[in-house]
Write a protein that binds this DNA or RNA. Structure first.
Lengths: 249, 249
DNA sequence: CGACGATGCGCACACTGTACGCAAGAGAGA
DNA sequence: TCTCTCTTGCGTACAGTGTGCGCATCGTCG
C-alpha cells in the first residue's frame, strides 16, 4: 500500500504490490493423500464420474490442480484409491461358525451390492481398473470369502472358485443396477417417474418379442425399487444353492 | 485451369486457383452409420477404449471429425451402437427342446463370455450405458433366455429373474476378466509373462492373509488362460445347478 | 545462518467432444 | 435447362481435459 514499498520493489523486478505478491506463510491446510481421496469420493458420490476432474478437485481443496500430483501419481491411481476406500465399507461378518457359512456369505453379498449402489459411479470404472483387487480392503474381502468357503468344506482351489462365482454374480447384478441408477440420476426424475417415462420406448422395442412383452407386462405394476431387491435376492439364493451342493454343510 | 476461369472469378471473390478450390465432385465414399460403427469397432478392438476419438475415427474414414455427427447423435450413442453390434455376435442356439435347456443356456453363456473377451473394451463402458439393453441384438438375447427358462418350467416373473441371474454371473465374471485383459494388453507382454511379473507384488500384498497366500500358491503352476476357463466353467455349473432346483426339468 | 528436501502452483502442450454456420452436391419441379 | 430445397461434409472455435516442467516457497536440520 505505502508508496515506500512500491519504491523498494524498483524497476528491475516487475512491480509487485502487496496485493499481487503471494501472501506470506502457507495458510491452506496442507494437502494429504487421505484428504484428496476423501474429497474425490464426495465429488464422485454427489456428481458422478464425469464430474471428477483434477482441476475441480483441486479447487474444492483450495489448491491448484497440479498440486494433487505431489500426493497421487495420476488420476487412475486416485480412482483406484477411491475404489478401495469403498471396499472398506463392505460389512464382513466376524462369525467363524462353519454352519453359518450361507448366512454369512449372503450378508456379505448384500453389503457388497448395497455399497456399490451407494456409489454407483463405481460401475463406470470397474472395467478399467485391473489392479483394484490388490488394495488392502479388497484383499480383506477376498480373504474373508476364501476362509468362509474353506470352513464350509471346500478345498483351497474350489473355495477360490466359489468366492469368484459369488463376487461375479453380485458385481454383475450391481453393475447393471448402478448403470441404471447413473442414467436415472442424470435424468433428474424419481425412479417411479423415470420408469414410467420409459415404458412406451421399451414396449415399442419389445414389440416383436412375445416373451419380453409378457415379462414387461408382469412387472408393470410393481414398485421398481423392491422389484430390484427381489430380483437380486432370487439370484443370490440360486447361486448359494448351487454352491451348497459342493459344501459339506 | 484455363486463364479464362480465373478471369471469370474476378476480384470480388478472393482469388481461388485450382489448388485452393476444393476439387469438384465428392470423391470420398459417402459416410454411413454402418460404416462408422464398423470402423469404430475395428479401432476399439485393436487399440482399446482410450484410442477411440471422433477425430481419429474421422481420419480413418477419410472424413472430418464433425462429419460423423450427421450420422450419429454423439459419441455415447456411437458406443451404444457398437455394443449392440457386438451383442449380435453371441451365438443363440435355435433348439426348442425343453429337455436341453441347461445345455442351451450353457452354450449361450459361454458365447456371451467369449464375445466379451474378444472385445474387452466393452468392460469399460457397460457400467455407463444404461440403455444398451434396448438394442435389437440385446433384446434378441433376452428374449431367447426368457423363452428358454419359460420352457424349462418357470413362470414368467421367475424366468426373468433366472435370466438376469445367469447374465449377471457371466457379465460379472467376464467384466473382471476383460479388465484384466485390458491392462494386460497395455503392458505389451504375453499373459504368462505378465502373470509372472505380477507374482512378487501380489504375494507381498497378500502377506498377512493366510488363505489368500495359499490360494496364490495353489495357482502358481497353472496356465493362467486355462485356469480362467475352468473358473468360469465352475461358476457357470454352480449357477445352473442353483437354477435347476427350480425348474421342472 | 545456510542448505536442503518437500510441497504448492502457474504455464504450456496436446488433445478431447461437439455447436455452429457455410458450401457444395443431389434430386425435384417448372 | 434453371432454380429451389434438402442432405451431407467440413473448417473453425470453445470450453474443457490430464499432466510434464520449472520456479517459488515452506519447514527442518546442521
Amino acid at each position: 500500500m505505502s508508496p515506500q514499498e512500491q519504491a523498494e520493489a524498483g524497476p528491475p523486478t516487475p512491480v509487485q504490490s502487496v496485493w499481487t505478491r503471494p501472501r506470506a506463510g502457507r495458510e491452506q491446510p496442507a494437502l494429504s493423500r487421505d484428504q484428496i481421496v476423501a474429497e474425490a469420493l464426495r465429488l464422485l458420490d454427489s456428481d458422478g464420474i464425469d464430474a471428477l476432474s483434477m482441476r475441480k478437485l483441486g479447487t474444492r481443496l483450495g489448491a491448484g490442480a497440479t498440486s494433487l500430483y505431489r500426493h497421487v501419481a495420476n488420476k487412475d491411481e486416485l480412482i483406484e484409491l477411491a475404489i478401495d476406500e469403498i471396499y472398506g465399507e463392505i460389512e464382513i461378518p466376524r462369525s467363524t461358525d462353519p454352519a453359518n457359512w450361507r448366512m454369512d456369505a449372503a450378508h456379505c453379498a448384500q453389503s457388497l451390492r448395497a455399497t456399490m449402489l451407494r456409489h454407483p459411479w463405481i460401475a463406470s470404472v470397474l472395467g478399467e481398473m485391473g489392479m483394484s483387487y490388490l488394495g488392502p480392503n479388497a484383499m480383506r474381502l477376498a480373504e474373508f470369502l476364501l476362509a468362509l468357503f474353506t470352513r464350509a468344506g471346500l478345498p483351497t482351489t474350489e473355495a477360490d472358485q466359489a468366492a469368484s462365482t459369488l463376487v461375479a454374480y453380485v458385481t454383475g447384478m450391481a453393475t447393471s443396477e448402478a448403470a441404471y441408477l447413473n442414467v436415472l440420476a442424470r435424468s433428474g426424475h424419481t425412479e417411479q417417474q423415470y420408469v414410467e417415462s420409459l415404458w412406451p420406448t421399451a414396449e415399442q422395442a419389445a414389440e416383436s418379442y412375445p416373451h419380453l412383452r409378457e415379462g414387461y407386462a408382469e412387472q408393470r405394476g410393481k414398485d421398481p425399487r423392491t422389484a430390484r431387491d427381489e430380483n437380486f435376492q432370487y439370484g443370490l439364493d440360486r447361486v448359494l444353492d448351487g454352491l451348497e451342493t459342493r459344501t459339506t454343510h
